[in-house]
Design a protein around this nucleic acid. Sequence first.
DNA 1: AATGAATGAGACTTCATTCAT
DNA 2: TATGAATGAAGTCTCATTCAT
Lengths: 197, 197, 197, 197
Amino acid sequence: METHTKNKSDQILKAALHLFAENGFHSAPMSRLAQMAGVGVGSIYRYFRDKNQLVHAVFEHVDQALTTMLAASFDPDLSDRDQLIRMLTHLIYYLHSHPREFRFLEQYYYSPYGLEKKRGKLLQENNQNVPEPLRKFFFGELDGSVKKLPWPVYQALIFGPATFLVRDSLAGLVTLNDDMVQSLARACWDALTIKEF
Amino acid sequence: METHTKNKSDQILKAALHLFAENGFHSAPMSRLAQMAGVGVGSIYRYFRDKNQLVHAVFEHVDQALTTMLAASFDPDLSDRDQLIRMLTHLIYYLHSHPREFRFLEQYYYSPYGLEKKRGKLLQENNQNVPEPLRKFFFGELDGSVKKLPWPVYQALIFGPATFLVRDSLAGLVTLNDDMVQSLARACWDALTIKEF
Amino acid sequence: METHTKNKSDQILKAALHLFAENGFHSAPMSRLAQMAGVGVGSIYRYFRDKNQLVHAVFEHVDQALTTMLAASFDPDLSDRDQLIRMLTHLIYYLHSHPREFRFLEQYYYSPYGLEKKRGKLLQENNQNVPEPLRKFFFGELDGSVKKLPWPVYQALIFGPATFLVRDSLAGLVTLNDDMVQSLARACWDALTIKEF
Amino acid sequence: METHTKNKSDQILKAALHLFAENGFHSAPMSRLAQMAGVGVGSIYRYFRDKNQLVHAVFEHVDQALTTMLAASFDPDLSDRDQLIRMLTHLIYYLHSHPREFRFLEQYYYSPYGLEKKRGKLLQENNQNVPEPLRKFFFGELDGSVKKLPWPVYQALIFGPATFLVRDSLAGLVTLNDDMVQSLARACWDALTIKEF
DNA sequence: AATGAATGAGACTTCATTCAT
DNA sequence: TATGAATGAAGTCTCATTCAT
């Protein structure tokens, strides 16, 4: 009974993620949310100032989990190429197996909510959230045969395809399989490296 | 005297695009929309059954313009590589110079509205909207040194990075320049082709 | 093409009767009404000041037809008893075979529309609409074994049962047959006459 | 302190009865209704799903009270004739002294609202609402000199005249007095019984 | 701390009526 | 005379938020 408060706040966050992802922010009344979380409507306001703040809190929560997962995917023994492929593979499978989180993030980023938070983006230049060992993958500080590219291009090349694929998969347009994931991750590496003639 | 305000239905569509892109679907009351279009509220309902239908109509409109632009970017004299680079370049500049359309499309796709329309996606396998000469770029029917890839991977590699970059640009995180656009487009081609040692 | 105007007004009246009876006054938009009548919306307003007046006009129309039918049911050769039975029989069959008129009248009488028109009631004491030969049946000026009754009671005893029965019939609660009609009409006569011990 | 305003749901029901009876369903906006009930608009929707359901709820309420009153009019010591007369007398006086209820019922029955509820009619064959001791009066299971009549005819003869009279009375066409009520109730009995020569 | 009844601003939509053609 | 596009007042209903218990 000690972590009572923490539990209640988590229940709310969980219900919110569920409802937001499934119905969109605007078809997720606080009342239904409270019901789903098993708490009173008023209680939500004890933990979150208002609905806006709740939305942002859900984002932080989901974002945090994603970052943690990415950091855990790091293996110092791998080459840069293998590490990149590993990270992308993990990313794709994670998002694919967490469809609520993915759907939430998409709605969040591309809605007015997300724009308020422009500067909170995961992939921003000196974003403290990026786990140290992965920084070089985010900002293009790789060596060897890797092209010198502006970092935004670098990020676009790495993360654009992965999210695009997961999107199609969750939309039901594609059935994901290992072959797709592998070939996509390898192609991303190819995009970064210099072609030899 | 009849031509000073285009079609009334177009005025509405235009105002809707504006408001939806700027404020999101749910902060765009029909009343404000009518005001911005310079028509009575009731008039909107003469042209569009309800708000939902208006949203979809705006999508069709924007989607159509985008498709037309892409088709116009085709030049039969170019090699596949150059044609791909040209198409991506046009796409990026178009989206960048039509921020309302881009913002609208993103909100639309990643909102419950867009999901209703899942199967209407621009990039779907036998989407009639894809202009004929560009089909090979959408579905990976390129030859030479191009990898055999599942088409969803193919599309992800081509369109993922471009939209990712435009997104960052319009979010104010990046200032787009020709160098970025060129290097991104070239890298996309590299992602598709076989590395030679 | 000569009676063009008359026709148009009648078309409107007819469509109005149809729609009012079927949907109720408030689910009968002028636009649908115009459409059903095959005229423009604006045209209705050339023949009727506004919707209210149209409703009243439909009433006059229906009321007129009913009165005419009743008058035609009079046969000077019959005894008072047989004449009453004949009149009630005709009334019941008429209403039953004109369900739209019946439903309209009921809605009209028991709605605010009808109350405005209180004094227009068919059965009012010196209502000019009551056909002369039938006045004695409406106001109790019958002789022989007929009770002396206040005229409102008189009317209630005659018309109350008939309308009640038709109501149930049109509501689908009862399937009308000749036996019912006959026994009801005879019972009405019995209600008016003195019981002998 | 809790008893000074009955149940909030009852306040709403009462205001609704008032407004519906006086103005008709369609001139009784939820806002005015809320105001009259002394509650916020939103509160109505806590107790009733929508306006339709409110209308039906008012009906149930009124119908219940009427049935209760009728049941209370039963006196086992009276002959069938006296009991019928007593019941009709009570009915007439009740309706006359509850004009709002009467006006509401009429509007309800003869409007699309009532038709939805066709089969809920008070006088339907095996309506559970009919109080047991009165069933024989509703369905014609009387003996002695009473005619064998189809039950719809039976009901029409009993209830048709009474409601007809009250209607005229409340419409201001007649001033009700005991003589009228008595003579009407007796005549109803006469309508049911066999004439002896 | 927790609750949920109460609230009312504001959203969407309908439809009687007008008026320029 | 006939039309129907245009209008906006008014109606129904939702839901974020408050506050007394």
